[in-house]
Design a protein around this nucleic acid. Structure first.
Length: 218
DNA sequence: AGCCAGGCCTGCC
DNA sequence: GGCAGGCATGGC
């Protein structure tokens, strides 16, 4: 495709038309997005939902209450989300960071330059590229595009070549899309939704909305 | 029964 | 600077 901007926008419109508005991220507060972003690491969202329900029935979903909750009680609440030992540590750590560095509110990150805010998040143990961008975009509402393994797999199959590394993929999207938080939010959610149905290890391409683009490189 | 989930860290090379 | 191995539960 000669015009990348056209390609990324057209792909977005095809997905949006096919799947509709995804209403991401499902959470009541910015901090709930943070908690969900940690809990969903390599874990299905249905399991995360149970964990968040448990957690809400146990304590308030605020940095202070998560930081102060007894460690064993936290682990027990989030057990359905798996990896509960390290995720409990990570929730404690990011809660402490929000309390100590952000005056208790994750949204204070929006006062910083985007890349500075991003590097702040990346300095927290257990927060990698994707988790940082998810928090920036869905909790803080800063225009940071989220890349995940689905994005790389899907766009690789559709024909994007020679892009290597998380930051290169992120820049590719951000350099070729309008700086629009709504589009960033929706696009990532649509890629995830699409990837649940298509572009898996098996060539499940029947009735794929992307069949006009896809090189079917299996 | 095994593979996969809305990743990340560590240790080795 | 890349890459396997570990982390743990639930659905299909």
């Amino acid at each position: 495709m000669e015009d990348l901007q056209q390609f990324f926008l057209t792909t977005y419109r095809v997905l949006l038309n096919y799947y509709g508005h995804q209403k991401w991220w499902p959470a009541e507060t910015g901090f709930e997005v943070v908690v969900g972003a940690i809990l969903t690491q390599n874990t299905s969202w249905s399991n995360v939902e149970r964990a968040i329900i448990n957690l809400k029935s146990t304590t308030a979903l605020t940095p202070k209450s998560i930081f102060e909750i007894e460690h064993e009680k936290l682990k027990e609440s989030i057990r359905p989300a798996g990896f509960f030992n390290q995720k409990a540590d990570r929730l404690k750590g990011i809660s402490k960071f929000i309390l100590d560095e952000l005056g208790g509110d994750i949204k204070n990150l929006s006062k910083l330059d985007l890349e500075v805010a991003r590097n702040n998040l990346l300095s927290i143990k257990g927060v990698g590229d994707e988790t940082a961008d998810s928090i920036l975009l869905y909790a803080v509402e800063m225009p940071s595009f989220v890349i995940d393994k689905y994005t790389i797999r899907m766009f690789g199959r559709v024909g994007v070549k020679g892009v290597k590394g998380y930051q290169s993929w992120r820049r590719l999207f951000m350099d070729n899309l309008p700086v629009d938080i709504g589009i960033y939010k929706e696009y990532h959610a649509l890629i995830v939704e699409h990837s649940k149905n298509f572009c898996r290890s098996k060539p499940l391409c029947e009735d794929c909305p992307m069949e006009n683009y896809c090189k079917k490189l299996f």
